[in-house]
Write a protein that binds this DNA or RNA. Structure first.
Length: 470
RNA sequence: CGGGGCGUAGCGCAGCCUGGUAGCGCAUCUGUUUUGGGAACAGAGGGUCGCAGGUUCGAAUCCUGCCGCCCCGACCA
């Protein structure tokens, strides 16, 4: 009798089984994209409205959202960019829990200082827990348990994790949620000089990160707030719906990091970038100084609104003193480590990007974060030539490492175009019977609205080239 | 937490003042005709009227309490 339960036999059925055809969800008829024609009444600002209308998020309760497939996809892309830029600078990814013990926070003295914004929970044993609003205490605790020598420094650890701050009044969708995804990083250095280099290094990584997302975020001298510290800059994206009032010299807005080379180990290079990007007056209302601002030539003075998308801090030995994080200094003594922390509001960035990039038809994703590289619109579903051409493009794009979204629904053209415009894919390939008669399809830019007819092979090559693939 | 507003079909809303068969548009489903920028016609399904209590012969409607959500202010990635 055959033994059907033999483990060795089961092992033969591997996930590599070539019989399993990938069942891609990138066809709109199979995707989950609940778009709304009507403007949701609860949404006040354009990014919130568009995220709801484009089926990216659904509110679960005040300031708490489910990320529907399209929104999740963009969120992941943003997360990926943040990871790449951090790791390029030698910062090490990890993951700490959302729930923390209150004891750590009592040690640092912040359990009481943080106030009602911190969500406090009691577990079944009556232990005080909290949903972390940030992780300085926890990372310092990890650090001091494992690092004892200056030889282990410098060290920068970071993670991207959900945070909870029980805002008095959450609003504006993901821009001011109570639960939000944040990248927070922590550097540990032996000396103040080293820690300031880490500070400068982070400034560079942040400039690069925002530019890759198609955003211009201006570093502005800021207030350190409850985290405490001496040096701090906030990164602000200019937008009318921003919650911060900002004052700046318009020359700062001309600065671009671009694709210049940077050696993250070079103290001079990193310091030079900081000097360059902080060389003009740029402050939030918290640190605004009218006398200093007067020194900027009047024609260059600007006041505007901004969305805060990140902040970097150097806070010296505040946490290492409180929590006893010190290392052997190599001279027979102990030295408290110099620390800094650095945050990027990952989920907020979606809102900021949309605020900065949309029109009256919908979102316009920058190519760096778009959920799909391009849309394929089949104008005559069921027509053998159209179906074949679309299918061919879809497979070829996929084979070139691109992710197209193929609208294969049996629907009128108008609805398909409206959906594509709303969800903001930067490029669209339109396939219709009229064009196919001449052997061409249409490639359209979402941003400019300009279309160009070309054979399908050229359309494929065009899209691949835009994204540096194929 | 102070002030204002709203909870009625998946979404957007009317009905409430003056109690008496729960409605409209969009979406969904079926059929037909359509198809190059949110189609037309015909038909169908879908509701604990936020929850609880009270008044009444009778409550979506009146009264009380609670819950949720939104907006303005003080706080914040």
């Amino acid at each position: 009798m055959r033994d059907m339960t033999c483990p060795a036999r089961l092992a033969l059925v591997s996930t590599q089984n070539p019989v399993l055809k990938p069942r891609s969800p990138m066809r709109l008829s199979r995707y989950f994209l609940p778009v709304l024609k009507e403007i949701p009444s609860e949404a006040q600002i354009v990014s919130h409205r568009l995220m709801l209308r484009a089926g990216m998020i659904k509110q679960a309760s005040a300031g708490i959202y489910s990320w529907l497939p399209l929104g999740y996809k963009v969120l992941k892309k943003i997360e990926d960019i943040v990871h790449e830029e951090q790791q390029r600078a030698g910062h090490i990814p990890m993951l700490m829990p959302t729930l923390q013990s209150a004891d750590l926070w009592r040690e640092s003295g912040r359990y009481d200082a943080y106030g009602p914004e911190m969500l406090r929970i009691t577990d079944r044993h009556g232990r005080d827990m909290l949903y972390g609003p940030t992780n300085e205490e926890m990372i310092t605790d990890i650090f001091k348990g494992a690092v004892g020598s200056y030889k282990d420094l410098p060290l920068t650890l970071y993670h991207i994790q959900w945070k909870f701050r029980d805002e008095i009044r959450p609003r504006f969708g993901v821009m001011r949620g109570r639960e939000f995804l944040m990248k927070d990083g922590y550097n540990f250095d032996l000396t103040k000089e080293d820690a300031l280099h880490a500070y400068n290094r982070h400034l560079v990584t942040y400039l690069r990160t925002y530019e890759r997302m198609g955003l211009q975020a201006i570093p502005m001298r800021a207030d350190s707030g409850p985290i405490g510290g001496d040096d701090t800059h906030e990164f602000l994206v200019l937008a009318d719906t921003g919650e911060s009032e900002v004052f700046y010299d318009c020359e700062i807005a001309d600065l671009k990091f671009g694709d210049r080379a940077i050696d993250y180990d070079s103290v001079e290079q990193c310091a030079a970038i900081l000097a360059e990007f902080t060389s003009r007056y740029a402050r939030t209302d918290e640190t605004h100084n009218a006398v200093e601002f007067e020194k900027v030539p009047e024609a260059r003075r600007r006041s505007a609104r901004g969305i805060e998308v990140g902040q970097i801090f150097y806070f010296g030995t505040k946490y290492s003193d409180a929590l006893g994080a010190s290392v052997d200094d190599g001279k027979g003594g102990k030295a408290p480590v110099h620390m800094g922390s650095h945050g990027i509001g990952v989920s907020r960035l979606l809102g900021a990007i949309i605020e900065a990039s949309h029109d009256d038809r919908g979102i316009i994703w920058p190519e760096g974060v778009t959920p799909f590289h391009c849309g394929i619109v089949n104008l005559r579903q069921g027509d053998a030539d159209c179906d074949a051409a679309c299918e061919g493009l879809y497979l070829a794009l996929t084979a070139n490492g691109l992710e197209p979204l193929y609208d294969d629904r049996d629907e009128r053209a108008g609805g398909k175009f409206a959906t594509m415009d709303l969800i903001g894919l930067p490029w669209r390939i339109t396939v219709g019977p009229r064009g196919l008669k001449n052997g061409v399809v249409e490639v359209t830019s979402r941003r400019t609205g300009e279309s160009e007819e070309m054979p399908p092979e050229d359309a494929l090559a065009r899209i691949a080239r835009i994204y540096g693939k194929g």
